[in-house]
Amino acid sequence: MKVILQKDVLNLGDAGDLKEVADGYARNFLIPRRLAVRANDGNTKVALHQKRLADLKREKRTKVMKDLSASIEGKTYEVKVKVGENDKLFGSVTANDIVLAIKKTGVEIDKRKLDLGEPLKALGEFKIKVRLAEGVAPQILVKVVGEA
């Protein structure tokens, strides 16, 4: 059965794609969950139009993210944290702390875009990847500095 995907489906395709799938998969999974519709002439034209709009939107977003990437790429951001004896941190530096340091320079970034892996629990410099969009992932340098 030919279907037009309404949403991105893992291991099948992106929204707007025309796919040939098993009848049972389409009837029992894709169509009831509104992930796809049965392909016919009218639906195909609408799907192609939606795909073009989605591509334009994605290109525009990527362009904006590349501009944002150029403004933060390679810069150093300083995060001050309280430390105790032997420069041991009280707590850790989280994505939210880093976003606040970036915000002081006038750039807004969502904390979910930062790829920390795990919170920073030591003083020093750390390279952090910022996943802005597909193919746009600048690296920033975060300097964790202690204050007594």
Rank of each mutant, 00 (worst) to 15 (best):
V3I: 05
Q6E: 13
D8V: 03
D8C: 01
V9A: 10
V9S: 08
L10P: 12
L12V: 07
G13M: 03
G13D: 05
G13V: 05
D14W: 13
D14S: 15
G16V: 02
K19N: 05
E20Q: 14
G24M: 12
G24A: 14
Y25A: 08
A26H: 04
A26P: 03
R27D: 04
N28G: 07
F29K: 01
F29A: 01
F29V: 03
I31V: 07
I31Q: 00
P32K: 06
R33I: 09
R34K: 14
A36W: 04
R38H: 12
R38W: 09
A39I: 07
A39E: 09
D41I: 15
N43Q: 15
N43I: 12
N43G: 13
T44A: 15
K45Y: 11
A47R: 03
K51M: 07
L53Q: 12
A54D: 08
D55E: 15
D55H: 14
L56P: 08
L56Q: 14
K57H: 14
R58I: 05
E59K: 15
E59G: 13
R61I: 02
D67F: 11
L68N: 06
S69V: 02
S69Y: 04
I72M: 05
I72C: 11
E73D: 10
T76Q: 09
T76K: 06
Y77S: 04
V79K: 01
V81I: 10
V81A: 01
V83S: 05
D87Q: 13
K88P: 00
F90K: 00
G91R: 01
S92Y: 03
S92A: 09
V93E: 01
V93K: 00
T94Y: 03
T94S: 10
T94N: 08
N96K: 13
N96T: 09
I98F: 00
L100H: 11
I102Y: 05
K103N: 11
G106K: 10
V107M: 09
E108H: 14
D110I: 04
K111S: 02
K111P: 06
D115Y: 11
D115L: 11
L116E: 10
E118S: 14
E118H: 14
K121A: 03
K121L: 00
G124M: 02
F126M: 08
V130K: 03
V130W: 11
V130Y: 13
V130R: 06
L132E: 05
V136H: 04
Q139A: 13
Q139M: 12
V142C: 02
K143E: 12
K143Y: 09
K143G: 10
V144Q: 04
V145K: 02
G146P: 02
E147W: 07
